[in-house]
Computed example of a mutant assay.
Amino acid sequence: MGNKLVEGLSAMNTTSLQVAPDILVMNFTIVSACLIGTADNYILVDTGLENSAKFILECIEDKFGRNSKPKAIVLTHGHFDHVGSVIKLSELWNVPVYIHQLEMPYVTGKKDYPVGDPTVDQGLVAKLSPTFPHKSIDITAYAEALPEDGSIPGMPEWNWIHTPGHTEGHIALFRGKDRVLIAADAFSTTKQESLLSVMTHKEQISGPPKYLTTDWKAAENSVRILRNLKPSLAIPSHGEPMKGKELTRHLDMLVNNFREIAVPDKGAFVNK
C-alpha cells in the first residue's frame, strides 16, 4: 500500500526547476533528482522512483535534445526513492552508475536495508514506511565505486563528501567555485514524515528522513560538516532548494538544535 501511494503521488505532480544555468532539479513530489552539466557533458544525480523514468527522459529531451544521454548516473545512496529508475535508465543508456563503496552491497544484490521504522513519528509517511521497498537491487553490470579521492567522473568541478547517518555510504555533492551543495538526504527542507508537508512542500528545516535513518550520531556530524562548507545554495532530495542568508540561518539552527529538531524521541536506531 505505502509504495503504491508514494508512486501515485509522484505521478500526480512532476515539476522541474532550473536553479543554475547547468543544474535542473526534477521534482517528483516525494523526492527529487538533478541533471547537472551541459549538452555535451552532463550527469544524472539520483533516479527518483520506479515511475520517474518517463519524466526524466522528457526533461533530458527538452533540455538536451532527442536521443541525448548522460555520461553517467551518480547515486547519493541506494534507498528505493533514489534508485527507483536506475535499472531501466542504466540499461537504456549503457552508462556507469557511481555510488559510494559502502553502498555497493545494496545495489549489487548482496545486502538489504532495514525495514522502515514507523515509531519515529506520527506522520502518515512514517507510519507507511515499513511497506516501502527495502530489498537490494542488482545493477552489478553498471555499478562502480566512486574514486576515493573525492572526485566524480564526468563532473570535474564537483566533489563528493561522505555524509553517513541516513545510510552507511550516503554522499553529498559540492561545487567549491559557487558553493552549491546537493545535500540529498543529509537534511531536508520539509518534514518528510508528514504527508501534508510532503504534498505542500511546507518549508521546515529538518534532518534526514527519520524512518530510514540508522545512525543519528553520524547524521548529526554530517550536517555539521555540510554547514561548515558555508553553502550558498542547497538542493535537498526532500523539500525545496534553499539559498543565501535563509540557508545559513536554517543550517545554523539545525546544527545547534539537532537533537530537538531532527532526532526522534524513540525508534529502533535512536540510542545506537
Rank of each mutant, 00 (worst) to 15 (best):
56 I>F: 06
120 V>L: 03
80 F>C: 05
129 S>I: 03
262 A>N: 05
33 A>Q: 00
143 A>M: 04
126 A>S: 14
97 V>G: 00
237 S>W: 01
140 T>N: 06
23 I>E: 03
95 V>K: 03
83 V>M: 03
255 V>E: 05
9 L>H: 02
235 I>M: 13
254 L>M: 12
231 P>D: 08
179 R>G: 08
6 V>L: 10
199 M>E: 07
63 K>N: 07
176 G>T: 13
86 V>Q: 05
73 I>V: 10
25 V>G: 05
165 G>S: 10
235 I>C: 13
184 A>W: 03
51 N>S: 10
114 P>K: 07
203 E>P: 07
237 S>K: 07
173 L>P: 00
256 N>Y: 12
265 D>P: 06
121 D>N: 11
33 A>F: 09
232 S>W: 09
156 P>W: 15
159 N>G: 11
144 E>S: 14
155 M>I: 09
87 I>V: 08
140 T>M: 09
93 W>V: 05
9 L>D: 00
161 I>K: 06
233 L>G: 04
25 V>L: 14
229 L>M: 09
228 N>L: 14
40 D>P: 07
74 V>Y: 01
250 H>N: 12
75 L>Y: 05
66 R>W: 09
102 L>W: 08
56 I>D: 02
69 K>Y: 14
29 T>A: 10
8 G>D: 04
197 S>C: 06
111 K>H: 08
108 T>H: 09
224 R>F: 09
271 N>G: 12
234 A>D: 00
59 C>F: 05
128 L>F: 06
90 S>F: 07
228 N>Q: 15
4 K>V: 00
170 H>D: 13
230 K>T: 14
88 K>H: 13
26 M>I: 11
46 D>P: 10
24 L>N: 01
55 F>N: 00
42 Y>N: 10
55 F>A: 02
120 V>T: 09
230 K>D: 14
148 E>C: 12
130 P>T: 08
216 W>S: 01
212 L>R: 08
175 R>W: 13
66 R>F: 11
202 K>E: 15
190 T>M: 15
228 N>Y: 09
108 T>M: 11
167 T>D: 14
34 C>K: 03
87 I>Q: 14
183 A>Y: 01
28 F>M: 07
155 M>T: 04
168 E>H: 10
161 I>C: 04
77 H>M: 04
180 V>E: 02
75 L>Q: 02
202 K>C: 13
94 N>R: 14
230 K>A: 14
75 L>A: 02
57 L>S: 09
69 K>R: 15
83 V>L: 06
184 A>M: 04
93 W>P: 00
37 G>Y: 01
181 L>E: 06
18 Q>Y: 13
268 A>M: 15
176 G>C: 15
134 H>L: 10
72 A>D: 00
17 L>D: 14
196 L>I: 12
232 S>L: 15
3 N>G: 05
174 F>P: 01
264 P>H: 13
121 D>Y: 03
182 I>D: 01
